[in-house]
């Protein structure tokens, strides 16, 4: 029996690219595609629906982490064997899905993290520094060093998807998953992924910038005390 792999794509105002992202994914394999529209003000949800995928819609914008959790919940309801999360802005290359899920399929890992930093040549220098800072604080707060703690391109086994439980709704979700890996003693690995930094994806306002990064760090520290 072949494994059912679900792709969870959290999106916010991605009407311009979501259709082509879905088409590109379909050309690389037979996946169950779940798009979670996180309260977009444009017609992202309608665009996704037209592509005959499971298109879920948050009536309010709740953050990337919240959208991923909704997608994972839907994938669990559909009894997916492997769940992959990827960004909906076209930065992630669907050709990387197969190598990402392979360690789970082989039974070597529960979680596989896509890493942009295993090959730094593709990444702008400012992003390398920001990611290193993210990795450092993730290590300080959660105790595991990974090469790309902020990557949204990840794969989870069904076991991991059921067990991972975090309250993080915003960008700190990616780091909180690292903590869950440690707390639940999940087996994890890292696989190099290729990122396409287009004018469109780099120009988006809601991406994790310096201010958002500091807010994310504050949220991570705050949740240690509160």
């Amino acid at each position: 029996m072949s494994d059912l792999t679900a792709l969870v794509i959290p999106v916010f105002n991605e009407a311009y690219v979501i259709g082509s992202v879905i088409d590109e994914i379909r050309r690389t394999g037979d996946y169950l595609i779940i798009v979670v529209d996180d309260g977009s003000s444009d017609d992202t949800w309608q665009q996704a629906r037209q592509k005959n995928v499971l298109a879920l819609r948050h009536r309010l914008n709740r953050g990337k982490g919240a959208a991923i959790k909704t997608g994972i919940l839907a994938a669990n309801l559909l009894a997916a064997d492997i769940i992959v999360t990827m960004d909906g802005d076209g930065q992630h290359d669907p050709a990387d899905i197969a190598p990402l899920v392979e360690p789970i399929r082989a039974g070597h890992c529960d979680v596989v993290l896509g890493s942009r930093l295993l090959d730094r040549q593709e990444m702008p220098r400012v992003k390398v520094i920001a990611n290193w800072a993210g990795n450092f604080f993730t290590w300080v707060l959660y105790g595991i060093w990974v090469s790309d703690s902020q990557s949204g391109f990840r794969a989870y086994s069904r076991h991991a998807a059921l067990i991972i439980d975090t309250r993080a709704d915003k960008y700190e979700y990616d780091s909180k998953v690292i903590r869950e890996i440690k707390d639940n003693r999940l087996r994890f690995g890292e696989v190099q992924i290729h990122t396409r930094y287009t004018e469109y994806s780099m120009g988006k306002k809601h991406k994790q910038g310096l201010i958002n990064g500091l807010v994310t760090l504050f949220r991570m520290i705050w949740k240690m005390i509160a």
């Binding site: 499971l54 879920l56 948050h58 009536r59 709740r62 919240a66 959790k69 909704t70 839907a74 559909l78």
Partner: peptide, 18 residues
């Protein structure tokens, strides 16, 4: 709590498709 309600609502809205 708002996130949880939003999540449940989105799953409920798509329950036929699911």
């Amino acid at each position: 709590n708002i996130s949880e309600i939003t999540r449940k609502q989105s799953i409920h809205d798509a329950h036929e498709q699911i």
